[in-house]
Design a binder for these strands. Sequence first.
DNA 1: CCGAATTTGTCCGTATGTATA
DNA 2: TTATACATACGGACAAATTCG
Lengths: 233, 233
Amino acid sequence: MTKTPAKSWQAIQAEVTRRINTRIWPPGEMLPNEIDLAVEFGCARTTVNRALQALADKGVLERRRKAGTRVALNPVRKVVLSIPIIREEIEQSGAGYGYQLINAQKLPAPPAICDALQTPAGTKAYSVKALHLAGGKPFVFEERWVNILSVPTIQTADLAKMSANEWLVQNAPFSRGTLSFSAIIADEALAKHLTCPVGSALFCLERGTWNGEQSITRARLYYGPGYKMETSI
Amino acid sequence: MTKTPAKSWQAIQAEVTRRINTRIWPPGEMLPNEIDLAVEFGCARTTVNRALQALADKGVLERRRKAGTRVALNPVRKVVLSIPIIREEIEQSGAGYGYQLINAQKLPAPPAICDALQTPAGTKAYSVKALHLAGGKPFVFEERWVNILSVPTIQTADLAKMSANEWLVQNAPFSRGTLSFSAIIADEALAKHLTCPVGSALFCLERGTWNGEQSITRARLYYGPGYKMETSI
DNA sequence: CCGAATTTGTCCGTATGTATA
DNA sequence: TTATACATACGGACAAATTCG
């Protein structure tokens, strides 16, 4: 019988995690039901429930009514990734943050963008290109298209003073979005903006946002060579 | 006055989200305290608490005792990313999954690996190289080092039948890990394994795991050119 | 610097709803 | 259909953190 150090749902979470890690409950194993665990830990069932639910949210446990709770066969599935705010990320590294608008203009959007923004082919959209600098050196090149049907007022915003991202956060709500990561080769334009060799491998973060069915914007952030996005499990 | 459709913490979560999205509560705005919200929604404070806590977990709200609850200034900070199990990802795309062990042997680990595995420089470690195939074509090249001081038994495992990842999941528990994403240029070796041109940009996922203070393994997964890791917000 | 007031965090015990084997 | 196990709710209570005077 294991000593029960428990108190508070976080302690229970820790103890359950320990048992999983030490294979007392190996992958696929069924756990005792909440009532039994509550008795063992000497707490209310609601407290056990809270702990197990949190672990299920993390993907460590799988729970189904009537079927019970089991240790997930494939752990490490869900990770909470904190998307760094570029400015904060740079300032935390100790370097000074700089922002530089390259250009902002209404342009006929390329087909791929019209598709992404769900506007008819050939529609004009607002193109914004900007650079985020760390210690005066290029850190991220931002390439953004804004749907002027959804957010017409962006055309009058002074994007030299406030980044498009900040402006949108304050002026254009969104309800959902997509996020993707990929690797891309630096072409001449990218290499010039980031002052890196043509052919470098760049980490690319692409984000699209919608408000209901209306598309708002689609942005690509190209990080300089060698960038790593890190998180812990 | 808004109609309160509330019932269940999820409904409250939805209503709060709606108010944030429609700028009834813009970024930075303070929310009423839990008690007042409970009165407005006609439910118990614990129910409100659950809803707001869930939103705080998502990074939508920021909460502090006594200070209260406010809408986060920078939304979209925390994202739950589901790291796809390679086999599942391939099978879901409709292609057949294949696994191919390239080699597995005890080798003196390069300094960077010894550093990552926290073993003395020049220590031997177990090197595993393998390929995951989708529809018979290379999809991911896996390059792994396993700490044989922590997991000596891996040397007797038949890694041609079971992938190192699967074997470790079943045989070597870990308590914490790191995860990073980056972009890398395909050198000749990588290009050969993935049958892609030298100089391609590859998406690279790097994972390190520990059990307490003991390092277990460090793996790099190189995805073929054009791969995108996607998620939604 | 300290105490008081406020707000969230967590707990308990109970009750009822709901999916499912 | 029924029994089981999880999901959620309620209200009361106290703890902990932090702001503010």
